[in-house]
Nucleic acid binder design. Structure first.
Length: 853
RNA sequence: GCGAAAGUGGCGGAAUUGGCAGACGCACCAGACUUAGGAUCUGGCGGAGAAAUCCGUGGGGGUUCAAGUCCCCCCUUUCGCACCA
């Protein structure tokens, strides 16, 4: 295989990653068990290290390299710490780009996707990532997606999957429906500049709202997740406690009151209801529509408002639009005091939140105040601070914690909180309302009018099956799975799912009556695939179940999940939901998928996100070809702390490459000597002591950083310092002043410290210095505190907080000795001349501060 | 508008608990060496100053023997949410 360097010439001693890395890659490729996790009875503690799986675009980008380098360093470290590590990888392989590519290149999506996967797997191997490929998961294969269908049937059976007609988000570019989570500022998550439209369609939904409270409360326990992600999820769920109150329409106001006897408003401040001076309803509200039918002028104004709202949503500044409205001329009755208040239609009322109608209390709500000021509506104060000041606070007055009601009938004098509870109860008892909880979170629409996705395992019986389900919806039995995605399909971007044009797919028989039936032609959202893929990794070849519960229960929860923050409310909320559903189905025991989540920063270049249009894309292949994989990934870890954005500077990669070159030359120089030397410690001279001190300080620093802070940039800096120290003592090592055993310990340990960051080089050096077995299965070095201790310390001496001198003392000197030494220092004495020493502050081992006048 | 994070040399960044600001690396400058390499080695590198020394972590106040770090006010940038009743 590789040639030994024995007596090597200069050229042979030069660090050449282009030679070393492919050599080790070939060896690793030939050993599929190398990174395999042990079975769950290994007796070692488990560690599930997971990075978010990529979409197989065909090319790894720098963001992937960074993400996976972090995970790889951690996985290797945990192996060396003796853990049974599961470190899998897979492919989020369904999705629209495959269809676009099919149109463009006339390649079937499956073929395109699978060849991309092969290319990316090759790239990953070239970089040397430590994945257990035996458990690879590819979501577009029937072995995987049949379980999506299986879960869908389970959810249908438990009422968690249902069909309804509703307003849905439609991306004209994707030609499909999108979930709320996939709409970002009114635009499609795949198309930054495509405005999402609203359509009325019948679609499949998953009842994620059933878990809204648990998803919210569970966030409290996820202490290992970034606060930012938890906050985003909290806001997305948007729980709000309030009260629904029915305002009856006044009969005299118009005909048809019997058809719609009341407007239900939602409020979180029912305690302010005596201050309600109007009702405001959304332009899309059913009552607005009905009034419009009888009033052409109103109809025109309402339509205008709807159009304006739409335009504002599309231009992305919904919040900036001026509040305005129009009076309907009708009145509604406040059930708490019998008062008649005017009904308005206003543009700031959202149809899809709460009940689409509010009571307007100008005195105690900012928007209502603004609106009332504009239209001269009455502003009536009903809440005051509970401490009686001379002056009443200005309006709108919003406090509800230290305030009480006034002018509110029987509730006057009660605190806001008391009144909220009492008035909700009162409404319920008198049947004109009730306390309620609303959420911003909506059920997850999973139907997609696309081809390249999991077929939904439902059929529509042409016989109707009245009484069973509307539209003759019939669930397929488990035995009918998988519903295979046909392969010969003409992809177009128009006219709904291409599956609908395949008679062979659409036409089927009803599993209940045997009569003619039509298959569902929509496919599932790709986020279904990624909601549970990490469970499949624990048992990826299982042909009879999504996974074996015993295996999943051993590995779960994931100990460390690593990925980009862009999934904070997409994948990360869906997969939490899926976990809870699987738990309730009895498949798993954990409540949450991952104990710890780490979101790495973006890789940017010249201050901007890499993009083709900006022309600032740095290709990993390019970097690897020039500097090698070790230098590329080590730079990705060195250039910034992993949670921050990283500005890619090629000169920095070259710097890392030079550093690794120094390590290589130095280690090879002593390799033969190290091979022939047993470990062990004898007497040390000063140089040997200094080397071991730095070595053990470095071990301690890196070990500690791996336990949570993850500042790999400073870990690598520490290794560089260590190497600089070794270079400082090169002469002493050459002369034999440093013992051979110490030289051996230093280089063996250095190699181990490098292993998580520069896998190829570490493997090569480990072999060169005669190490046994795979370097990342060797026990991680343990820092010896005794060796790491400094025996002499430099203590700065300040005068009035400014540095005046530095004294050298034996470590552990007590306060008196430090103080005496500081005062005896000639530089200090000179500067104290003629001044009065007021106070001496001694911080042992840290500094001395002399306060003088 | 609300919320979060951040602001330190020419650049990326370090300083985990208040204790020598600028570790480590890049770029740059000077020199050495040479098989002229995408080398390597030595030294320098926050600002002002000949030096002693002084100034310096977005700005302004404060606490402290001591502040990049803690407190108050303000500015800027990035991200998230954005009429949520």
């Amino acid at each position: 295989m590789s040639e030994q360097v024995a007596g090597g010439s200069e050229t042979q001693q030069r660090y050449n990653p282009a030679e070393i890395e492919p050599k080790w890659q070939a060896r690793w490729d030939a050993d599929p068990g190398l990174y395999a996790a042990d079975r769950h009875d290994s007796g070692r503690p488990k560690f599930y290290c997971l990075e978010m799986l990529p979409y197989p675009s065909g090319q790894l980008h720098m963001g992937h390299v960074r993400n996976y380098s972090i995970g790889d360093a951690l996985a290797r470290f945990m192996w060396m710490q003796g853990y049974n590590v599961l470190h899998p990888m897979g492919w989020d392989a369904f999705g629209l780009p495959a269809e676009n590519a099919a149109l463009k290149n006339n390649t079937p999506p499956r073929e395109w996707t699978l060849s991309n996967i092969a290319a990316m797997r090759k790239q990953m191997a070239r970089i040397g990532f430590s994945y257990d490929w035996a458990n690879e998961v590819t979501t577009c294969l029937p072995e995987y997606y049949r379980w999506n269908q299986w879960f869908f049937l389970k959810m249908f059976e438990h009422g968690l999957a249902y069909r309804k007609k509703s307003k849905v988000n439609w991306c004209p570019d994707c030609q499909t429906v999108l979930a709320n989570e996939q709409v970002i500022n009114g635009r499609c998550w795949r198309h930054d500049d495509t405005l999402v439209e609203q359509k009325d369609l019948t679609q499949w939904f998953l009842r994620i709202t059933q878990y809204a409270d648990e998803l919210l409360n569970g966030l409290e326990k996820l202490e290992g997740w970034p606060e930012k992600v938890r906050t985003m999820q909290r806001n997305w769920i948007g729980r709000s406690e309030g009260t629904l109150v029915d305002f009856a329409l006044e009969d005299a106001a118009g005909a048809g009151a019997d058809q719609c006897p009341a407007i239900t408003v939602f409020t979180t401040r029912v305690d302010t209801i005596f201050g309600a001076t109007s009702i405001q309803i959304a332009p899309e509200h059913a009552v607005a529509k009905r009034f419009s039918e009888q009033d052409a002028v109103l109809a025109g104004q309402v339509d205008k408002m709807i159009a304006e709202q739409k335009a504002a949503r599309e231009s992305g500044d919904v919040g900036a639009i001026e509040k305005h409205g129009v009076s309907t001329g009708r009145l509604a009755i406040n059930p708490f005091n019998g008062e008649r208040v005017p009904i308005w239609v206003a543009n700031y009322i959202l149809a899809d939140y709460g009940s689409g109608a509010i009571m307007s209390v100008p005195a105690h709500d900012e928007r209502d105040f603004e609106f009332a000021a504009k239209y001269g509506l009455e502003v009536r104060r009903v809440i005051v601070p509970d401490v009686h000041g001379e002056e009443l606070p200005p309006l709108p007055y919003l406090d509800e914690d230290a305030s009480v009601l006034m002018n509110s009938g029987a509730w006057s004098g009660q605190s806001c909180r008391e009144a909220q509870a009492a008035m909700g109860k009162h409404a319920k008892e008198n049947k004109f309302g009730e306390p309620t909880v609303t959420y911003r979170l909506k059920d997850w629409g999973v139907s997609r009018q696309r081809y390249w996705g999991t077929p939904i395992p439902m059929v529509y019986c042409r016989n109707g099956h009245q009484g069973v389900e509307a539209d003759g919806v019939v669930a397929l039995p488990e035995s009918a799975l998988p519903v295979l995605l046909p392969e010969q399909v003409e992809i177009t971007q128009q006219g709904g799912s291409p599956l609908g044009r395949l008679a062979g797919f659409v036409d089927t028989t009803c599993p209940v009556c045997g009569g003619p039936a039509r298959r569902e032609t929509d496919t599932m959202d790709t986020f279904v695939d990624s909601s549970w893929y990490f469970y499949r990794y624990t048992d990826a070849k299982n042909a009879t179940a999504p996974f074996d519960s015993a295996k999943a229960n051993y590995w779960f929860p994931i100990d460390q999940y690593i990925g980009g923050v862009e999934h904070a409310i997409l994948h990360l909320i869906y997969s939490r939901f899926w976990t809870k559903v699987m738990r309730d189905l009895g498949l798993i025991e954990n409540d949450e998928p991952a104990t710890r989540l780490f979101t790495q920063g973006m890789v940017i270049k010249d201050g901007a996100k890499m993009s083709k249009s900006k022309g600032n894309v740095v290709s990993p292949d390019d970097m690897i070809a020039r500097y090698g994989a070790d230098s590329t990934r080590m730079y990705a870890l060195f250039a910034a702390p992993p949670d921050r954005d990283l500005d890619w500077q090629e000169e920095g990669v070259a710097g890392i490459s030079r550093f690794l070159g120094r390590v290589y030359r130095l280690t090879i120089k002593y390799a033969e000597q190290i091979r022939g030397t047993a470990t062990g410690r004898g007497k040390q001279g000063a140089a040997g002591q200094a080397l071991l001190r730095k070595l053990h300080q470095t071990i301690a620093k890196i070990t500690q950083d791996f336990s949570g802070r993850w500042h790999f940039n400073t870990c690598i800096a520490a290794i560089m310092e260590l190497v600089n120290t070794i270079l400082d003592h090169e002469a002493a090592m050459d002369s034999g002043e440093v013992s051979a055993a110490t030289v051996a310990e230093v280089f063996r340990t250095l190699t181990l410290l490098l292993a998580p960051f520069a896998a190829f080089l570490a493997a090569e050096l480990w072999e060169q210095i005669g190490g046994e077995g795979a370097v990342f299965r060797v026990a991680w070095p343990v820092a010896d505190a005794e060796l790491a201790r400094e025996n002499e310390v430099e203590i700065p001496v300040q005068i009035n907080g400014k540095l005046a001198s530095v004294i050298k003392l034996a470590a552990g000197s007590d306060e008196e000795i430090i103080k005496a030494a500081a005062l005896a220092d000639p530089r200090i004495q000179a500067r104290l001349e003629g001044r009065t020493l007021v106070k001496v502050i001694v911080v042992p081992a840290k500094l001395v501060n002399l306060v003088v006048k």
